[in-house]
Amino acid sequence: MKYILLMYHTEGVFTQEELPKEMQYAIGLCEELVAKGQFVGASPLQTISTATSLTAKSGRTEVRDGPFTETKEQLGGYVIVDVPNLDEAIAIAEKFPAAKRGTVEIRPLFPLAGIPVS
């Protein structure tokens, strides 16, 4: 089963000195997942100041700067894993820096036939 681990934290929760170390640590975790055949994909996100949100309702498209919601914690990145069950996804998620200073939301991906694969 594929799960997405959505990494939420307050921007600036890691100092300028901590951030490179935490990112290297996360890369190391991803490398471990690759070695176990559990890694599907991952990426950190740019800061919320680069976000654009779009809605297209009733034939009207609205584009605005910023994230969809104004919250304390922002989506900072994601990791997609392929593991047998939720317990294994939880064990992986708890190792990531966002789990220690924010929240990791774990959701199973919905398998949909016909989605193109790169």
Rank of each mutant, 00 (worst) to 15 (best):
R101V: 14
E31C: 05
A51G: 07
T10G: 10
Q46I: 02
G76Y: 00
I80W: 01
G28I: 09
M23H: 11
L86H: 08
M1H: 10
F96N: 00
D87S: 12
F14H: 10
M7N: 05
V81L: 09
Y78P: 10
Y78Q: 03
T50Q: 13
I115M: 10
A35Q: 15
T69R: 12
L112K: 06
K2M: 08
A89T: 00
I106K: 00
V34D: 10
L6T: 02
L45R: 05
M23R: 12
P116E: 09
P111D: 14
F68V: 06
V83Y: 01
A56K: 01
P97M: 03
K2Y: 05
G114T: 01
T71G: 08
H9G: 04
A56W: 12
I4H: 02
T50G: 02
T61I: 15
S43A: 14
E32Q: 15
V104R: 04
P111H: 12
P44I: 03
T71M: 04
A113G: 11
V13A: 15
T15M: 09
E70G: 11
F110W: 14
G77I: 00
I90V: 15
R101C: 02
K2E: 14
F110D: 07
P84K: 08
F96C: 05
E88Y: 02
Q46K: 13
E73K: 11
I106G: 09
I4Q: 03
K95Y: 11
E70W: 07
V79T: 15
A98L: 03
M1A: 07
A93R: 04
E31H: 10
R64I: 14
A89L: 03
L19N: 13
G28D: 04
P67D: 05
K72G: 01
T69P: 00
L29V: 08
A89N: 07
C30R: 14
